[in-house]
Design a protein around this nucleic acid. Structure first.
Lengths: 337, 337
DNA sequence: CTGTTAGCGCCTTCAT
DNA sequence: ATGAAGGCGCTAACAG
């Protein structure tokens, strides 16, 4: 059984004293090959434990049945959820998935994309890192015939394929529910100001307040650099306000975890003195003693799945690459517990 | 710039009116090629935006610079951590990583392995699913020249390459610390009895008790099927005991999360009436109000890293494939902040 | 130093 | 219904 080299079509042909082309055709049930011949070929193929050499096929067909996925981090739960769904979609279509993590390093990101290109993947799915500024790679890949679909963290560019989460619906719902619970001092702990994700949250927040006819108070919007220290500084700033907010919407779960802990340490009773809602990315609230009232869910799995589906459309039908495809998935408020 | 087909060595050769082999050699700085020629070749290559066709190279060299990784789940934090390190090791060596998740389905696992084989990956890293019984694929892959390294969840077989965590040190430490805190009623909430992971925990637990001269009480060992219901049933059984344990070691963090919640609901004060330590796989304790006293860490990242390193040794030096390589990483008790 | 030749494994016209 | 021939892009053995 222990064959050093796997069997090839040639060997099968030799054994049967027929030509390689016949074997090739028989193996794929070509109609013009006699039934008997086909059977004999398949029998020998089985005996020899023949397996087509995909690398040869890839080479010849200029197709690898592989897609590349580039993410900031592979261990982040948000992305894990996306990966998992992407793998499912790919697996269903008999594609394999090559992964790379940029770790928010533009250089590393570029290197990975380069590798994917030389590996001749059939398409690329990417959520860009925080620090990425250069998008030349899009042109590079597209002109090499490799379609690219962005998701979640996407460049602010037109003419690209992308799947994003619309942060607004969740924000509006969050403010609605706070208001209907009697809150009027609702604040926002936002991320770094220049981040698109922060800009959208702020815009939605203001819109939500307007909708509920709550006057905007500038000091209710604070920013954090997303470090634990930054998060703590942000909440402390809010708690020091003469008109301390009774409701807080935070940039994401990590921020919420930190600020809730700090608020608790400051003697506030969670879900009583102060209430929280955050954008979700860390699925652990069900285990926590005093979870936030609700989470604004961005459905990373769905985003990944949708992005993968779009990518496969593009792979299957080059025609569709002419017009950019863009999908927006609505965020949604999910009550906790 | 938008070339339909990427440039090839041939074209460069034609432009320069030299032979393809010269171009090929020049491109890789072969010493026997004149400096001028080399320069000219590289210049044209750059102009034509030449990029080597890796699929052709893979085909020719019978090597893909790709490793396959098969895991039960890509979204599980434990595996995410492993993946992340594996990707790092691979990336450092300019290898790419193909991922597949078995979802604990032996059929799906096998299909993924089959795909990896036909993709001619240079090596495979695998943590098998709970239900895997058949290991024929090892022979299959090895005989196709593809080395396999198991890690974390490994089959109970000799002669395979594997990296595992030794569950005992952490367990002994856990019992030691409990005892030194004055506990003598220490119980174990174990996983399914036939699971190797459960068997090892139980063995270590008994050893730890012996070491501390604490008599073993059978009713202090309970099992759960790892569902929330099973977990609750297990803790309730313990709480109903006339001699209720004051310390509990649980199979993993998920079990701990459930049973701690239930214990709290039953009116017990965590870290006061009852204390917990669990095998770690979910990195969230720092955010929880009453975390367990400590966690037994299995260092998934280190396991993944080590496994990847071993795999690359095997890939680089086929000689080493003759003797199985096995590594054991000690588990360790980590106090919670 | 450089060119020629041959072939990796498979597929695909084009003949027969 | 089957064979023969050629080529995908690159490399390497063998000549000069």
């Amino acid at each position: 059984m222990k064959e050093g080299k796997p069997a090839t079509i040639k060997e099968i042909a030799k054994r049967l004293k027929i030509s390689p082309s016949t074997v090739s055709r028989a193996l794929k049930d070509h109609p013009s090959i006699g039934l008997v011949t086909t059977m004999r070929v398949k029998k020998v193929a089985a005996e020899l434990n023949y397996e087509p050499n995909q690398t040869a096929i890839f080479f010849k067909q200029r197709k690898t049945f592989t897609i590349g996925v580039v993410l900031p981090s592979l261990s982040e739960p948000f992305f894990s959820a996306a990966i998992s769904e992407i793998e499912n979609v790919a697996n269903d279509r008999n594609y394999t998935v090559i992964m790379g993590q940029s770790l928010d390093d533009p250089g590393r990101e570029l290197r990975i994309l380069q590798t994917l290109k030389t590996h001749r993947v059939d398409g690329v799915l990417i959520s860009i890192g925080k620090n990425t500024q250069e998008y030349g790679f899009i042109e590079q890949l597209e002109s090499a015939g490799i379609p690219v679909v962005f998701f979640d963290c996407v460049p602010d560019l037109d003419g690209i394929n992308k799947v994003v989460s619309d942060l607004e619906p969740g924000m509006l719902e969050a403010i609605d529910i706070f208001v209907s619970c009697g809150h009027h001092a609702i604040s926002l702990i936002n991320g770094p100001e220049m981040l698109p994700a922060s800009i959208e949250r702020k815009r939605s927040y203001i819109k939500g307040l307007n909708k509920c006819r709550i006057p905007l108070q500038d000091e209710y919007i604070v920013s954090t650099d997303l470090t634990t220290e930054g998060n703590d500084a942000a909440i402390l700033k809010l708690l020091a306000l003469p008109d301390r907010p009774s409701a807080v919407i935070s940039f994401n779960d990590y921020v919420a975890l930190d600020v809730m802990k700090t608020a608790r340490q400051k003697g506030l009773s969670l879900n009583q003195d102060i209430h929280f809602i955050s954008y979700a990315n860390y699925p652990l609230w069900k285990y926590v003693e005093n979870p936030p009232m609700a989470s604004i869910e961005q459905f990373p799995g769905d985003q990944g799945k949708r992005a993968a589906e779009i990518l496969f459309e593009l792979i299957d039908d080059p025609q569709k690459r002419k017009e950019p495809i863009q999908a927006v998935l609505k965020s949604q408020l999910i009550a906790q517990g």
